[in-house]
Design a protein around this nucleic acid. Sequence first.
DNA 1: GTGAAAGCGCTAACAT
DNA 2: ATGTTAGCGCTTTCAC
Lengths: 358, 358
Amino acid sequence: MSRTSSKAVPAEASGVPVQPEIRSLSGTGSLSIAGVAEQAGVSVATVSRVLNGHENVRPATRDKVLAAVDASGYRVNELARNLRTAESRLLLTMVPDVGNPFYAEIVRGIDSVARQHGYFMLLCDTGADPGRERSYFDLLRRRRADGAICLDPATIQQALGEASHALPWVACCEFDPSVRVPYVGIDNYRAAGDAVRHLLARGHRRVGLINSDVDYLYARQRQQGYLDALTDAGIAPDPAWRMNLNSLDYEAGASAAVTLTQQTHAPSAIFAVSDTLAIGVIHGLRSVGKRVPDDVAVVGFDDISLAAQIDPPLTTIAQPMRELGETAARLLLQRLANPLANVPGVLLPHRLVIRGSA
Amino acid sequence: MSRTSSKAVPAEASGVPVQPEIRSLSGTGSLSIAGVAEQAGVSVATVSRVLNGHENVRPATRDKVLAAVDASGYRVNELARNLRTAESRLLLTMVPDVGNPFYAEIVRGIDSVARQHGYFMLLCDTGADPGRERSYFDLLRRRRADGAICLDPATIQQALGEASHALPWVACCEFDPSVRVPYVGIDNYRAAGDAVRHLLARGHRRVGLINSDVDYLYARQRQQGYLDALTDAGIAPDPAWRMNLNSLDYEAGASAAVTLTQQTHAPSAIFAVSDTLAIGVIHGLRSVGKRVPDDVAVVGFDDISLAAQIDPPLTTIAQPMRELGETAARLLLQRLANPLANVPGVLLPHRLVIRGSA
DNA sequence: GTGAAAGCGCTAACAT
DNA sequence: ATGTTAGCGCTTTCAC
């Protein structure tokens, strides 16, 4: 022992085994509830009661315990508590891409209500990869998380649903009606229609659609909304006006825009299903010398904070991102509190925000 | 009991307490390791050995166990494992703002390395609030996380450092040299100098600085780099050219730009310490009819993916965001594996990326 | 190679 | 109001 210079451990130095010292060094160096109980001269049950704010504790006793906790700097070992109470107090959130500002804002909404209810959020970026998704989902079975919020494509949810409709999870933004699971989202069909009708009202007849992968329910719904809005206006949608991308990155939107406008009878307006895509579209258009909105009008989707900052400011469909996240978290918490009650699906309102791009 | 229709529980129906059935339904309905052991006809120790890939198990026995696991759909309860092994396998990441694309990319780097090593990431948005920060940090003491990566301001880190230089955490981007903790970052002083020297080379003499809060170490270092670069070029920096903001939002940059260029002898170039700020600056400039880079040149910092997409494309200092995150995670893991070894601080290279804005 | 049994630190009956 | 005690489900000596 090299601790001979220490002057506060005479008993230890003399070879006598001393309970308190030993106890306080147990495990990984931190004190356990038993140590606090000892220091306070009470039982572990009483310490536990004080720690958990139970009623049946005399004020004097409570003070003794609190003093001991304070003096020792004790912190409850939540690993033990979690095992005992059989809950991890963690909420799993699965996102296709944390880097997308749209998802980032939803995640914040989730996080804020989770924390408000004593839960922490385990954030997992799935990259929309079914394999990764599935392995994350397994965290529920392994009890590492109490529940999950899934923002991934409906196709994936379907697979999850089969395997585990019994597990506590809810769908956010994406949801497959055939999977019986609580969800929150918006009316993508109507929203897309609103976007297209705005373009129509501006006099456009050839309206392009830059869509994401049809794995996403929203992609299918928005496409249908786009198609029907056009048809309703007496326009026969040309398949050449449509593109499906497997990315929402700026670059993807940029090159799609170039392709789309390079053809004869090219669209005079483009509806992109994401603001990030739309921003890329504007960039791509500019790179081939087209002016927005004069040569080509552009409308996006989401209304991320960036939308108002670019040139020209983006006309877009606003989604209540924060509320989407908050609602998802609340639905999940509700499900956790009462596993039997069947939680309803909820649709939040969207809004057309008209700026300079269309 | 309403389970009379079940035909597989005769003993239970006859009132005899039966271990297996009761066990397999214990807890929250899922099977425990004891149940698997029973089904496989081995002891729990053996099941545990198989599950953890230990050597000393006969192939035949291993197969029996694996079969039982498969048949029962058993999943290990990590709450129990965590208590037993005294580790949570969670890494805490504290970020001032997940919504900022710069941090989002770093977070991805952390996550990828963490997962690669069997850890999950607990992401916490602190909003740069010392109170929230401190409470998150407490998760380490409560054993909910094994280690932490802090991207928050140095002032906060200082407070944390005092309270807990013994706790396993590392600093990323922000670090206070006086706090003895492993860190990874870039040379902000030189990077800022590079940005300013680029502007100088373009013939600018009046260079403005839009900085964030001086709570941030990077803000102080970049300001010094800016000041010294100017002075070295024989220019006396005018305090009226500088602004400090407490936000990195687009809007903050926009209004700052307006203020800065509204004065007489306004800067002909602006160095903003973040791309988000710089994008706001360009927007703000445009709103008062100034052209970039003709009337005012702009250089940003970070090189988020958006930087290349806006009009004009942003000239900026690129930070290796992904590597920053990956390195931080590796440093932390290193520290966890060997608590005694003193991990060094590491500085990663930056790079001036010249595009259209300056 | 396999099993029995001791705990990890906590909460919650159940006593008193 | 407080104490005693039995586990939660797992890993890990220590026997055999």
